[in-house]
Design a protein around this nucleic acid. Structure first.
Length: 276
DNA sequence: ATGCCTTATTTCATAAGA
């Protein structure tokens, strides 16, 4: 497919952007293909693909008109971007991300950036953190610092800029089904929320999607204990956008329908419609 | 008090997720 490159300041018409933590693209492929046909995103950011780049199921996805850029290391993690409006300037990994378990260890596959029809997009899977005061939590905060640095470096040069994906941060207490349950847990601590607010401080806007049902735009529900049907969710999949992008939003919603039925991911897609 | 579910893999058990 021919790549489309937009000159600075020129957008190429309406665009549907989406993000979805699919919890294994191998297990989710039938649901993903069905969702692509139904929802018709122009650009889809994926997280937790859990597959190497070589093994990525390119054929059935390209048959629907999408090009694929992925950054995967196999069993865990893994991110990708699907685009039917072309790719430019693909970046695998954050330029300065720490490794794990040591800062100097190889970088995990948690970020991929690309420019699609003039929109600079980062698909990110922020580390979980596991337990506060663990090495995993420290790693999460270091990783978020690196993400802040990347945004600070790139945002000034890209009027149309988005960083989206699974942030593993609930920005406020309203973003979890019961704040009392999360007291002392990761995802809600002040350092994590401070890292989120730092991203906003750089000039990004949190495009808070509307729920298709109920009052809470949750994007994740644990598989266990009937959490989805009881409304026990969290808003941790975010779309953070530059002011230019934010000003062009015509709709943004959480597609909770994708969380229903047989073999769903534990996350729902977030869909954002943009116009000129 | 804990598991509850789902995933991939070093598979009939484990690690990880959030």
């Amino acid at each position: 497919m021919e790549s489309r490159t937009a000159p600075p300041g020129i957008s190429l018409g309406p665009m549907r952007l989406a993000t979805w933590n699919v919890n294994s693209i191998g297990a989710r492929l039938p649901r993903l293909l069905e969702w692509l046909e139904d929802s018709q995103p122009d650009v889809l950011c994926l997280q937790e693909t859990k597959i190497t780049d070589d093994a990525f199921p390119t054929l059935p996805i390209s048959a629907l008109g999408y090009e694929i850029e992925s950054n995967g290391d196999g069993r865990w993690n893994g991110v990708a971007i699907l685009s039917r409006v072309g790719f430019d300037d693909v970046t695998r990994g954050l330029p300065n991300a720490p490794g794990f378990p040591d800062v100097g260890s190889p970088q995990e596959s948690r970020a991929i950036g690309a420019t699609c029809a003039g929109l600079r997009v980062w698909s990110v899977y922020v580390p979980n953190g596991r337990e506060v005061a663990s090495e995993h939590y420290d790693y999460k905060l270091r990783w978020l610092t690196a993400l802040n640095a990347t945004v600070a470096a790139e945002l000034p040069g890209h009027a149309r800029f988005v960083v989206t994906g699974d942030f593993n941060i609930a920005p406020t207490d309203a973003d979890v089904w019961d704040p009392a349950v999360f007291a002392g847990s990761t995802h809600v601590t002040e350092p994590e929320r401070s890292a989120y607010r730092s991203l906003l401080g750089l000039g990004l806007v949190d495009l808070e999607a509307r729920p298709l049902k109920g009052d809470h735009p949750f994007t994740y529900w644990d598989y266990r204990a009937g959490s989805f049907h009881k409304g026990m969710g969290m808003r941790i999949d975010l779309v953070l956008a530059s002011r230019s992008v934010s000003d062009s939003v015509t709709d943004a919603y959480v597609d909770r329908e994708a969380r229903k039925g047989k073999g769903p991911s534990d996350h729902a897609p977030v869909v954002v419609d943009l116009t000129d």
